[in-house]
Write a protein that binds this DNA or RNA. Structure first.
Length: 680
RNA sequence: AGCGAUUUGGCGCAGCGGUAGCGCGUUGGGCUCAUAACCCAAAGGUCCGAGGAUCGAAACCUCGAAUCGCUACCA
């Protein structure tokens, strides 16, 4: 059961420093973070590193465009990225930068070793050069007319219109995307990494269980084509590391990017006493090293990277694990549809653990694309987490706290049933280990169903009313809360914040995986409070709306007057006229108002809006007597989506002011307004 | 164009040789402890299409379609 403690180093791919993190990125970070937390949860030493990828032409140009230095740009970017990751509970041990002393040190070491071992060659190549900017142009930065189909304004490497691929020198009327100047051909000496020296090593490596089978198939194909030299140098001006001893020549960003994993880890070693760089990177290292990546960068991580490491006397990764791309509602993320959702936009509207759960619930260890279906997302999270899992505690804790002073029974009954929950631990652990999170969640939710069935079967709400039924009620609820605790242990890698609140509720020390081996008996718990709110459709809609690319609006800084009375609610985010215009307010007459049987706060209103009558349930019982409302005119939102409520459909909403309780004041139009009038 | 992945009930997925399962949703019933939650039951599928090997396929092979992606000196 207790395997000896492992030493594991894990990375996620480095986000590029020229743009914000979006939810497509988050798929990878959440996947990795869950796996890392799982390992730590089980008592292994698992270190998680990452960094911003900061070098290359796009960074350089973007900084120029903004009129700042690249250093300023990447510092800004790192701050934003780190804030996003923190908010999503991504628990890096170190989030570093490839533009750092540590990265430079390792990069130079690797280059020098490759060079000394004869893996670097040089030759002169001819490339398009921008005479105005005095820089060589990457293919993407040359635009011109396609030599095949005459489509205008195409990239230098292929044509969007006819799909042809060509060299930028083939373009008709080429121009620099940077300055607009006509590029000229210019010679320059470039440095190449002799990838072909590693063909045999790579052939073996990719079939030795280090990568997924589908990826290995793909790599085979590349290997069959033969490996060629890899151009690893760029001429000044370039934002990156200068090649040692070669002024004006820089290392291509893709050489130093993965070295950023090592640089980040080195920085961590420098501030932690118990970590030794060589223990993780020496060629004979017995520790484990894993890279989580997207399938788009397989080439770099499964060919260049192991070759670079092997050629410079370092260990190769234990495994490189690729995942698929994220789609939203079945299609590629789109700015116009509002499905290009930035991490920050998501966070402005929704709890990060919703997304962590949804990703976990559908992730597997393969490279299939992952669809974030927003409707499914809402239903699944609400149903699984709030409806099933949390509900177990919600429906039993009340009895324990109110009737038994929070005390769980001294002996636990139903040991057989609980043993079933405990026995699932190994099975679930294996799923996590294999990155089959979806199966893990499925197994956990099957147990949650079982727990709810158990409660339904025992009917503690009836037991408590029976004479002498107290003991059994306490036993049933104690068993239920033990089930809840076991599920919490299993869910902890996915939902770290939520489980922290669960720990406070259960009044226990931080849970670790092996705590599943014992039960909570003769223990006092705290009062239950709602641990998670359901996802509201409105929040998803608002997030999508906020993601739609529109003309940039500068949201005015909202500075609440410092001496403002405290109960004034802050003004919500500024909206555009067309947002406002969606709301259809109407003058209506309350033709009928009545109490609703069984409802504490609601009144049922029948509203005449001129051409039809609407039924609306309004939470104003505490402030109005029904008869005082009948015959009054008021204002309603007439185009609000109907809402099925426990007592019937509510077909709109009546406007009212005030904080609630008896402080509620419905609106009245001035004299002269009549039924059905639109309010603007 | 080449290659890879995907295509199973409304939605999201599992199954990978013995003639279809799960969750959500829907419908009906039950319960009322619980965040309109929970429990029970039902309806719903020519498993993308066409061929083929097999006693037998959703699953294997061939051809085709659709979607997403990759194709190293783009990041």
């Amino acid at each position: 059961m207790t395997e000896s403690s492992r030493k594991i180093l894990v990375s996620s791919a480095l986000p590029y420093a020229n743009g914000p993190i979006h939810i497509g990125h988050m798929l990878e970070y959440i996947q990795t973070d869950i796996w890392v937390r799982f390992q730590q949860h089980r008592g292994h030493q698992c270190i998680y590193v990452c960094a911003d990828d900061t070098h290359g032409t796009p960074i350089m140009l973007k900084a120029q465009e903004l009129g700042i230095t690249p250093e300023q740009l990447i510092a800004e970017s790192k701050k934003d990225h780190k804030a996003d990751f923190d908010s999503f509970l991504i628990n890096f041990d170190q989030f570093h930068s490839t533009h750092s002393d540590e990265s430079r040190e390792v990069t130079e070491l690797i280059y020098n070793r490759l060079n000394e071992a004869g893996h670097i060659s040089r030759r002169t190549i001819s490339q398009l050069f921008d005479p105005e900017k005095e820089m060589f142009l990457p293919d993407r930065f040359v635009r011109g007319t396609c030599p095949h189909c005459d489509a205008e304004d195409q990239y230098g490497d292929n044509c969007d219109s006819c799909g042809a691929t060509y060299s930028p020198t083939d373009l008709i009327n080429p121009s620099s995307a940077v300055s607009g100047a006509v590029p000229v051909l210019k010679d320059s000496e470039h440095f190449f990494f002799k990838l072909q020296n590693f063909e045999e090593m790579l052939q073996k490596w990719i079939r030795a269980g280090h990568i997924q089978e589908q990826i290995a198939n793909k790599l085979d194909e590349w290997l069959e084509d033969g490996l060629r030299e890899w151009d690893i140098s760029r001429d000044a001006p370039y934002f990156g590391f200068e090649i040692p001893g070669q002024p004006g020549k820089y290392l291509y960003v893709w050489l130093d990017a993965p070295i950023g994993y090592m640089g980040s880890f080195k920085a961590l070693c420098n501030r932690r006493d118990n970590l030794n760089f060589d223990e993780y990177w020496a060629p004979d290292a017995t520790t484990e090293l894993y890279h989580f990546i997207g399938k788009d960068i397989v080439y770099f991580h499964s060919l260049f990277w192991p070759a670079t490491l092997a050629g410079s006397g370092f260990r190769t990764p234990t495994a490189v694990w690729a995942h698929g791309f994220l789609t939203v509602n079945g299609t590629k993320m789109s700015k116009s549809k509002g499905t290009f959702i930035k991490a920050r936009t998501y966070l402005d509207h929704l709890n990060p653990e919703y997304l962590r759960y949804y990703f976990a619930a559908k992730l597997n260890n393969r490279i299939d694309d992952f669809d974030l279906n927003l409707e499914d997302f809402q239903q699944r999270v609400n149903s699984d987490l709030v409806g099933k899992y949390i509900n177990i505690a919600s429906r039993t804790a009340g009895f324990i706290v109110k009737r038994f002073d929070g005390q769980l029974t001294a002996d636990c009954s139903e040991l057989g049933l609980l043993a079933e929950f405990q026995q699932q631990a190994d099975n679930i652990a294996q799923f996590y280990e294999d990155r089959e999170f979806g199966r893990a969640i499925k197994a956990i939710m099957a147990l949650a169903d079982k727990a709810n069935q158990y409660i339904a079967d025992k009917e503690p709400w009836k037991l408590i009313k029976q004479q002498g039924g107290e003991a059994e009620t306490q036993a049933v609820c104690s068993v239920s809360l033990n089930m809840f605790r076991l599920l919490s242990i299993y869910l902890k890698p996915v939902l770290p914040n939520l489980i922290e609140n669960v720990e406070a509720f259960l009044n226990v020390e931080p849970l670790s995986w092996n705590d599943h081996q014992h039960l909570l008996i003769d223990h006092k718990i705290n009062k239950f409070m709602p641990l998670m709110q359901r996802i509201e459709k409105d929040d998803i809609d608002a997030m999508v709306e906020a993601s739609k690319e529109t003309i940039k609006v500068t949201v005015p800084e909202i500075t609440p007057a410092s001496n403002a009375t405290s109960y004034i609610e802050p003004i919500k985010e500024t909206i555009e006229f067309h947002d406002f215009d969606k709301l259809d307010f109407r003058v209506v007459k309350i033709v009928k108002a009545e109490h609703v049987e069984g409802a504490d706060k609601l009144l049922r209103l029948e509203l005449d809006i001129g051409n039809e009558t609407r039924q609306v349930f309004a939470g104003i019982k505490s402030a109005y007597k029904p008869e005082s409302l009948e015959g009054r005119l008021t204002v309603m939102v007439a185009n609000l989506a109907p809402r099925k409520m426990r007592f019937g459909m509510s077909e709109g909403m009546v406007l009212a002011a005030g904080p609630g309780d008896s402080d509620i004041y419905i609106l009245s139009p001035d004299d002269g307004a009549t039924l059905g009038m639109s309010v603007k």
